[in-house]
């Protein structure tokens, strides 16, 4: 059973990301939306942590939030999502965990 984790807060504001990484299992996915996309900034501590996750785990981000913050998402292997793709992902993974 794979889980899609949804994270919405910046890594400096909450422990969402570190808590999520503790329970992240092989095959899981993480969606970054809202201020959480700050975690994708090249060279940040959070981005370094993400580089260390299991290779079977995928990283996604809401494209509008990445563009609004001018984040260069090239540094990590990130798949950018529009809303239809976000919905499709929630269906594709067998569980969804919204971290709040």
């Amino acid at each position: 059973m794979t889980t899609l984790h949804i994270i919405n807060a910046a890594p400096t504001q909450t422990t969402q990301l570190s808590s999520c990484l503790r329970v992240l299992s092989a095959g899981d996915g993480i969606v970054f939306c809202g201020e959480a996309v700050q975690a994708l900034r090249a060279g940040s501590l959070a981005a370094q942590q993400l580089q260390g996750i299991d290779h079977s785990c995928k990283v996604y981000a809401l494209e509008e939030d990445v563009l609004a913050r001018a984040i260069d998402a090239e540094a990590l292997p990130v798949t950018l999502l529009d809303y239809p793709a976000f919905v499709a992902l929630c269906v594709a993974y067998s569980r969804v965990s919204s971290w709040t």
Partner: peptide, 9 residues
């Protein structure tokens, strides 16, 4: 089948 929560900012 799915519950999606939207909270925070």
């Amino acid at each position: 089948d799915r519950c999606i929560s939207f909270g925070g900012e």
